[in-house]
Nucleic acid binder design. Structure first.
Length: 480
RNA sequence: GGCGACGUGGCCAAGUGGUAAGGCAGAGGUCUGCAAAACCUCCAUCACCGGUUCGAAUCCGGUCGUCGCCUCCA
């Protein structure tokens, strides 16, 4: 039982061997906080959330760092996207950053994405970035031109090893508007001189300016995870130039390997087309959450491999939601039966069955975090559980608890799609009590074959979003 | 134009050499006051062509198609 993962750097599936046994240092490129987060972010960060969850479940001590980009990310007009937004809102740039950063975390919380251990901000690490740039200049991997500093790609022969790009070809494809102050079209900015209106600015050895986009990740990953660390993640769309530049800067500065395993997530398209502001086909996480519960969105994302591109559509998410409902329905019945089950040890045959499913689940996740295959194991488990709780039994408390525990581990801890309880609200207990009271009254009506009253209760509850299901062993309720 | 990925049943999607997981949808059945849920049964030969092999969805070559990146994007 060893973990294997697809390393984009080697383009092969490799056995995962951490630098320090039992310890995983991991960095994932975070968002630039200049607008609401969209479902593309959801895909990327839910994917890495499950990866982190599984690493922890496997016993690793994980240190998960994910940056917040709040400076230096330029539009092709040369304008900083955060300054642009600030101007639109008549707000200060750091107000913009604070607003959307909080919003990003709120969205991730809603999606049940665990927070990174460290969320370093680029603007809070200017000295580290300056120090790294000075190192690069000292080693002649970078040069200063009129207050700006550029990385010399020709000084790093391995430039392109991650993305497969070749410098010579980049030159051919170079655009007309290439900055003439660069020695080579593929050279990229480490530090940029600030124009007077550019208010995100810091003093540096080269004058007042601001860091380029790529340095922050190198500087912050190194600060918190070391010169060489285990896993670097991100979206595949940043493989070039961003990830490539990270490698070049870091390895040129330190003469040591940067990240050892590169895990990149596939892109998300919306109804077949890549989301983009210019096309106007964007869907924010908030909009999606208004339509589906978070588990549906997570299940949809996890129903294809993290490295594969996925196409977001109402039909696809609806289908994933129904699949999730099947699993959740079984969990609900198990927990319902636990309320009245008699005490007793777990049935050994059932324990054996559960162990087999668990082993199978782990085998799938060990194979490059194959969540869709693991999800299929959960579906097969659910079929068996449904047979147990619907057609056999009654089961002892111990047996039911063992089933519930397995769902909590695999569906809850690892995949994050099985809630602790049906509703986590403060009023949940009262709501449950009220509904159970109605169920009792309805049961009395049913005993009298008073179907009119019985159906009225059920129909009106349904209108309120509470679904009743009559089972041989009683009536259960669930939301939606 | 260059680089990369992909093309599996009506839809989504695992599977990377030994005769196709799972979910959704659909058909039939069981259970049920009805409904819902659940369970059972049925539903593909893997874009196309050629090659390697005892044997390929899985390897190689070609064709067609889709998508991503090359410019800001997770």
């Amino acid at each position: 039982m060893t973990l294997k993962l697809y390393n984009v750097l080697s383009r092969t599936k490799e056995e995962f061997v951490p630098l320090t046994p039992g310890k995983v240092n991991m960095y994932v490129c975070g968002p630039t906080v200049y607008d609401y987060s969209h479902i593309g972010h959801a895909k990327t960060y839910v994917s890495f959330d499950v990866i982190v969850r599984y690493l922890k479940y496997s016993g690793y001590d994980v240190l998960y760092v994910q940056n917040i980009t709040d400076v230096g990310h330029m539009l092709d007009t040369g304008e900083d996207r955060i300054l642009k937004k600030a101007r639109q809102l008549s707000a200060g740039p750091m107000q913009v950053v604070e607003t959307y950063m909080r919003d990003y975390f709120a969205d991730m919380d809603a999606l049940n994405v665990g927070r990174p251990d460290i969320s370093p901000r680029a603007s809070g690490h200017i000295p580290e970035q300056i120090a790294m740039i000075e190192e690069l200049i000292a080693k002649e991997h970078a040069y200063v031109v009129d207050g700006s500093v550029y990385f010399d790609v020709t000084s790093f022969p391995e430039y392109g090893k991650l993305s497969g790009r070749v410098i010579e070809e980049l030159e051919e494809g170079a655009r007309v508007g290439v900055r003439s102050e660069k020695h080579h079209p593929a050279d990229f900015a480490l530090w940029k001189k600030a124009d007077p209106e550019h208010i995100l600015r810091w003093p540096s050895p080269w004058g007042v300016g601001f860091p380029g986009w790529h340095v922050e990740c190198s500087a912050m990953a190194t600060k918190y995870l070391g010169v060489t660390f285990d896993i670097h993640g991100g979206g595949i769309d940043n493989i070039f130039p961003h990830n490539e530049c990270e490698i070049a800067q870091s390895e040129a500065a330190h003469d040591e390997p940067f990240a050892r395993y590169w895990l990149l997530t596939g892109s998300l398209t919306l109804d077949g087309i890549k989301m983009s502001k210019s096309l106007g086909n964007t869907l924010t996480i908030k909009e999606a959450l208004a339509k589906w519960r978070p588990e549906a969105i997570r299940t949809f994302i996890l129903s294809s491999h993290y490295g594969s591109p996925i196409d977001f559509s109402d039909e696809a998410v609806d289908a994933a939601f129904k699949g999730w409902q099947r699993i959740w329905g079984a969990v609900s019945v198990v927990r319902e039966q636990m309320r009245t089950a008699v005490a007793g040890d777990p049935n050994p045959n059932i324990l054996t069955l559960l162990d087999e499913f668990k082993a199978s689940f782990i085998e799938k996740m060990d194979d490059d975090f194959n969540a869709p295959a693991a999800l299929a194991v959960l579906q097969e488990l659910t079929r068996q559980v449904n047979i147990l709780v619907n057609e056999q039994g009654p089961h002892s408390q111990g047996t039911l608890a063992a089933i519930d525990q397995l769902y909590r581990e695999l569906g809850g801890d690892v995949l994050g799609i099985i809630p602790e309880q049906a509703e986590a609200s403060a009023d949940a207990e009262r709501e449950d009590g009220l509904i159970r009271l109605l169920i009792d009254l309805r049961a009395a009506a049913r005993a009298q074959k008073d179907w009119a009253t019985s159906d009225k209760v059920r129909n009106q509850l349904r209108d309120l979003g509470v679904v009743l299901e009559d089972r041989a062993d009683g009536t259960i309720w669930k939301l939606e």
